[in-house]
Write a protein that binds this DNA or RNA. Structure first.
Lengths: 304, 304
DNA sequence: GCATATAATTGAAAAATCCTATTCATCATC
DNA sequence: GATGATGAATAGGATTTTTCAATTATATGC
């Protein structure tokens, strides 16, 4: 029993004529004739009563033809589903973003995506890099926005932008006299840091190696966010390093803190998108990359 | 897209492994692999995300697999329907019976059929021979019980029994002294006849040719039934001819009328069943024939 | 009887299906 | 990094199925 067979018997029941039914199905009369007979043999029932003058559907044939119509309806639904899903830009996209990017990127990214792919609902979550890696591999999210390096089996990445780090301090701080700061200077002051697990913490410590095994002046704010740390700086509890997208808007809005760039070679991070090699909706990846760049995060430079 | 393809993707979605899914479908891994790929191409969507470590169903794939399961469920219904209908002795049987047989045959026939084919609902109607012929040809009834001769395009008949005619008269009638009567005698008395259209009327007139263009003694009871005529005889309005099955029970139950056979050669009718040559449920025909014979109509002789 | 209409049958060609063997890609281990 | 193991894709060939054109068989209508 094939879907073709079912189409044949439905047509035959409608036309009550082998020739016309065959024509309707774009096959020859013998083809349809043989197929119907074969199906009847397989099912072990006579579906049609043939005579030279006309073709009648039997009692059981009527029921089976009705059911065949139901099967064909459901089957054509499959094509419709495929039709609808063919557009890579429909169907939900599950995005994961690391904590130190999400609050600065998402407010502009989400409306952009919603506008460019209106039939693609967004399911977004913020998390640590290692959690996002797990979720990517399990297929719980489709794509992640995070900082390089990021090497995982079966996951590919594409850089999107480079983001320099900034020093943020109370506005009355001695350093605010400098146009630029060096990584060396950082160890002289109490440096507020994110808790373990945040890749940005590691990157800051990497940029200022002496801080890492250091003078005891750095203070880890376990469980905090960059925003919390920013407020702490504003109240004079210390200085910190923020990525440009987090720091630069403060220049205008926040008179309590001063923001200074690093002297070259300025530390920075490379932000990328990551997805399973096998992920089929490559168009969505391109779209996402474009939308991130068009979000115009302050201070960042597109890559590639 | 074939039902096989759908079975493949359903199995693959369950197993998340081409090899195991193929095994489950009793085909080789490449067969399933190729079929799935082909289906994906046809639909224009990726249903599965393949990787060496495991196979994931895509968003759209999930929907399509669900729909495929629905299609397969409906399709298996077809087999079930066929299974149920394979038994020729299930599904309604539409029987037509001529007016002059029905009242005597059906009371015993119906319970017999109901017992022998409990899953075969009976749709029974009484009518004239020419009406039954039409309905047979249109497929409105499946089988008819009637008197021969009956020649129609595309219809075959099988004799079931011969039924002699009887003379029925008021019990105080002069003829009741005879053991047998001849057809010649009939013209001497007012003979009550059925209306035109009843084949039995024609057969009686044929048996007694002189009555036909006759002495004016026959009275046509337009619109009446044999039962009506029987009551009229009982009240002394005339004599009549009835088929044995109608007449013989009166010998016991009806003291107001006398029943006499004809002298040889006794007029009789041959009762047969008729169906379209193309009618497939031949078992039902046999069953019906057997049940009619086992109804033990009084005075009749089985044929064949 | 002959012409017409219709379904079944035949026989050959085309298409598809399916399998075995092989290759390719990925990942894990040394 | 190299090597081996696992799992999916590909290639090639045999088999089966499907299909069609031509023909036959059957019933109907004139």
């Amino acid at each position: 029993m094939t879907l073709t067979d079912l189409r044949y018997i439905v047509a035959l029941a409608q036309e009550r004529h082998f020739g016309r039914a065959a024509e309707k199905c774009h096959v020859s009369q013998p083809t349809l004739s043989v197929a119907v007979k074969k199906l009847e043999e397989q099912l072990g029932v006579t579906l049609f009563e043939r005579s030279a003058v006309d073709v009648k559907v039997t009692e059981i044939g009527r029921h089976i033809v009705d059911q065949a119509e139901r099967v064909l309806r459901e089957a054509s639904q499959i094509r419709d589903l495929a039709e609808a899903g063919r557009d890579a830009l429909s169907g939900p996209l599950r995005i994961g973003v690391i904590f130190t990017i999400a609050p600065y990127l998402l407010p502009s990214l989400i409306p952009l995506l919603a506008e460019r792919a209106p039939r693609m609902p967004l399911v977004i979550q913020e998390n640590y890099t290692h959690k996002l890696a797990e979720q990517l591999k399990k297929g719980e999210i489709d794509v992640a926005v995070l900082a390089l390096p990021f090497v995982e089996q079966g996951i590919v990445t594409q850089p999107v932008y480079d983001e320099p780090f900034r020093v943020v301090m109370p506005s009355n701080h001695a350093w605010s006299g400098f146009r630029e700061l060096t990584t060396q200077q950082l160890q002289e002051e109490p440096l507020l840091l994110l808790g373990a697990g945040n890749c940005f913490r590691d990157q800051v410590l990497e940029a200022c190696p002496r801080c890492a095994h250091g003078t005891g002046l750095q203070k880890t704010m376990e469980g905090s966010s960059l925003e919390t740390i920013r407020h702490m700086v504003a109240t004079g509890l210390g200085v910190t390093v923020l990525p440009a997208a987090a720091a630069d808007p403060l220049v205008e809005s926040q008179k309590l803190v001063a923001v200074r760039p690093f002297a070259e070679p300025a530390p920075s991070r490379r932000v990328a998108i990551a997805w399973r090699v096998t992920y089929p909706r490559t168009k969505v990846i391109d779209l996402l990359r474009g939308a991130i760049l068009d979000s115009h995060l302050p201070g960042v430079t597109p890559v590639g």
